[in-house]
């Protein structure tokens, strides 16, 4: 697979179709790959593709176009990007929200089999790891090797992936992977919805009490491209900058609500969090509601108008009047 990726990127540079390519290279820690930016064709050899390529690369795209926005005749960069299903959905969102021009993005879509959540490996002293088909071989500092099943290590959002490849791409690589039905992906949220209010509130409290306001969830999110975030606005000041529970709560609720009709459930926010805060039930609840109310799903089509940007006479509004 990696050879195919390299070949494609080489061709893109050779045919002068892109100025820069965003993919993954080998990380410095076991079980890690790291985003990499390639501008010279000799660096293409650095590219890797494995089960540690979890970062959503779409997050890097808007910054290439921010400074040129509004400038006449600005020469915009042409960017090639490796896109898993989730990265691809984020790219669609960014195109639709006019943050990146479609014609400047060359999307190499890839069928993704899911990425590993290293937090699921309980051993803390892993010094090396090797991936072999559906197994991961980890080695500790005493050179003891343990074989783990990849399937058991997949991140929650990957385990029930509905779209393993992007809906919009210029070229699609790899073999089709097994997808999960919508009902199965939703199972976790349905279970959560059934819980009494107190329990759901308790879960929310428990999660946000871990938050240290490092903003990693926001920064890792391709949707959070605002030049000025409400969390830092000074006029008016919505919230304070501390890790006080009321500030944290307001920050997280604000962050989640701004995802309504936009979140593609890539899980970048959960992955980036160093403190293990997982608010995916709440972002997914919004996805589910938007789907029910407006029959819209973010990131799967370039044509469908986003619900927040349209108005229909028969738009559902119960949720406004009946809390």
């Amino acid at each position: 697979m990696i050879e195919k990726i390299k070949e494609t990127v080489k061709k893109l540079f050779k045919e002068n179709k892109i100025d820069i390519f965003i993919g993954y290279s080998e990380g410095t820690l076991p079980l890690r790959s790291t985003p990499c930016f390639i501008t010279r064709s000799e660096d293409i050899e650095k590219l890797v593709w494995n089960s540690y390529c979890s970062n959503n690369l779409a997050v890097y795209l808007p910054r290439f176009f921010v400074s040129q926005r509004g400038a006449k005749d600005a020469k915009l960069p042409r960017i090639g990007i490796l896109a898993k299903g989730c990265d691809g959905r984020s790219i669609v969102g960014l195109i639709k929200e006019h943050q990146i021009p479609r014609e400047n993005i060359y999307i190499i879509g890839i069928h993704c089999g899911g990425m590993i959540n290293t937090k699921k490996i309980k051993k803390v002293d892993i010094v090396a790891a090797e991936e072999k088909n559906d197994k991961v071989l980890v080695e500790d500092e005493d050179k003891k090797k343990v074989e783990l099943k990849k399937e058991e290590l997949l991140a929650d959002m990957c385990k029930t992936c509905q779209y393993t490849a992007p809906a919009v791409y210029d070229i699609l690589l790899g073999k089709e992977k097994q997808k999960t039905k919508k009902e199965d992906r939703e199972a976790f949220i349905k279970e959560f919805e059934k819980k009494p209010l107190e329990e759901r509130w308790e879960y929310f409290q428990e999660q946000i009490s871990k938050c240290i306001r490092c903003n990693a969830c926001r920064q890792a999110c391709p949707n959070c491209y605002c030049k000025e975030c409400f969390a830092e606005q000074a006029k008016p000041r919505w919230i304070g900058p501390t890790n006080d529970i009321s500030d944290v709560m307001f920050y997280q609720i604000g962050r989640i609500f701004h995802q309504a009709g936009r979140c593609v459930d890539c899980g970048a926010c959960v992955r980036a969090c160093p403190m293990g805060v997982d608010l995916r039930v709440f972002t997914y609840k919004l996805i589910k509601d938007v789907k029910e109310f407006f029959e819209y799903e973010a990131g799967v089509s370039l044509e469908e108008a986003p619900p927040l940007a349209t108005f229909k006479q028969d738009d559902k509004q119960e949720f406004i009047t009946e809390p």
Partner: peptide, 16 residues
């Protein structure tokens, strides 16, 4: 120009 490229701009490195 290269060192910063993949930085997300979060506060983890400084807070930790």
């Amino acid at each position: 120009n290269e060192i910063h490229q993949k930085c997300l701009g979060c506060g983890i490195c400084t807070y930790f």
